[in-house]
Computed example of a mutant assay.
Amino acid sequence: MIFRKGELFCGPGGFSLGAKLARVIDKQGNEYKIEHEWANDIDDYAVQTYRENICPSRPESVIHGNVRDIDIESFAPIDAFSFGFPCNDFSLVGEHRGFDGEYGGLYTFGVKVLQHHQPKFFVAENVGGLQSANGGLAFAKILADLKGAGYKLTPHLYKFHEYGVPQKRKRIIIVGIRNDFGLEFKVPAPTHDGINTPFVSSYEALNSPPIPEDAFNNERTKHAAKVVEMLKHIPPGKNAWCEEIPETLRLNVKGARLSQIYKRLDPHQPAYTVTGSGGGGTHIYHWLEPRALTNRERARLQTFPDWYNFQGSKEQVRKQIGMAVPTLGAKIIFESILKTFAGIDYDFIDSKWQEALDQKQKLVNLSLESQLELEI
């Protein structure tokens, strides 16, 4: 069985590469897999990266443009859908910027895809902080809209280092299966516990095998001499505020001191979260060499293969890598979805959220009713 997949906010293709790599064969020998059908993103360089690596023979299937300006209903039919919706401005209370702001209401375009195309399943992704936004009301509202499109939902906060990703990255993933299938997705059980199965370390990620010098996106950052000297005094796992740094080399910063500023990796542990933006001190730093990681090294931490060629300038590539879904994490989730459809058992854990979300939904309903009374 082939599931044709569409995607909004596709970025450079972390979700889609994981989907393409997922393969399941049932007891009768039938193969279940996912193939790219169409995608969209507003970032021109991310679109170029996606075309280059995911669908080089069909570049026209990746539409560059603002999701507000595209005709969703004109897209080809799909069986699967994924979207990493931005949620910066979403708010259910106060000024309601979530619906009218630049980013907050963008999840509704994913809902429109579900309503019109009715794919068999979808996967949505967002930052872990979404669950607590507006006291959890924003998350409950989003889930209510997704559920209302006709889907059985399984939301979960995934800690990707527990699934073999060499990076401590937490993301909310919502899997929805269309109601008429009568299936329920189960959260795949973690594969690494840090004890019986050690987490994959940053050392292993960057050195097994070593990255070729001529690999794509492997340019090094040019640092000021003072930065290089300061890094030499920072032990692995520590940052710019450690006492080992001589007074003359310390940063002159007042106020909050962010823990990831000039933080060097601990080679024995997964990396801290790879980000896509930020100035000096936010690029993730090697545990041995006094330098920032290259984009290819950051891509390794996001489990992109070395052949994956990101398009654009060094900073544009950094942005794409930092915003992506780790390929390995996506693959594990998509494989579990395929097993659900194929009727194949797999190890899973129970989601702890449903009861709490039901309570939040009651608060959302009460809030909306109060708003309606005020408007009347």
Rank of each mutant, 00 (worst) to 15 (best):
M1E: 12
I2W: 07
F3D: 07
K5W: 07
K5F: 06
E7W: 05
E7R: 01
G13C: 09
G14D: 08
F15S: 11
S16R: 13
S16A: 13
G18M: 07
K20Q: 15
A22G: 10
K33S: 14
S57Y: 04
S57M: 08
R58F: 13
E60A: 11
N66A: 07
D71E: 15
P77D: 13
A80K: 05
D89I: 01
G94Y: 02
G94V: 12
H96D: 11
R97A: 13
F99S: 13
D100V: 13
D100Q: 09
G101W: 01
L106Y: 00
H116N: 11
P119K: 00
V123C: 12
A124F: 10
E125H: 04
N126S: 09
G129T: 11
N134R: 01
A138Y: 03
D145G: 03
G148H: 07
G148V: 09
T154H: 00
P155N: 04
P155Y: 00
K159S: 15
Y163I: 09
G164W: 06
V175F: 08
I177W: 03
N179F: 02
E184P: 04
F185W: 07
F185M: 09
F185T: 06
A189S: 13
T191N: 06
H192M: 08
D193Q: 09
T197E: 15
T197H: 11
T197V: 14
F199R: 09
V200E: 07
V200Y: 06
V200N: 08
S201F: 06
S202C: 13
Y203V: 06
A205C: 06
P210I: 09
P210E: 14
P210C: 05
P212G: 02
R220D: 14
H223M: 10
H223N: 13
A224P: 12
L231R: 00
L231K: 00
K232P: 14
P236E: 02
K238V: 02
A240P: 05
E243F: 01
I245Y: 02
E247R: 09
E247D: 14
T248C: 05
L249R: 07
L251A: 05
N252K: 15
G255V: 10
G255Y: 08
A256L: 04
L258N: 06
I261P: 07
Y262R: 04
K263T: 06
H268F: 05
Q269R: 12
Y272R: 05
T275L: 12
G278H: 12
G278A: 10
Y285N: 05
L288Q: 00
R296T: 15
E297C: 00
A299Q: 14
R300N: 12
Q302T: 10
P305L: 09
D306H: 01
W307K: 03
S313Q: 07
I332Y: 03
L338W: 10
I344Q: 05
Y346Q: 10
Y346M: 06
F348C: 13
D350W: 01
S351I: 01
A356S: 14
D358W: 04
K362T: 15
K362Q: 15
L363P: 13
N365G: 01
L366K: 13
S367N: 10
S367V: 11
S370Q: 11
L372P: 06
E373P: 02
L374P: 04
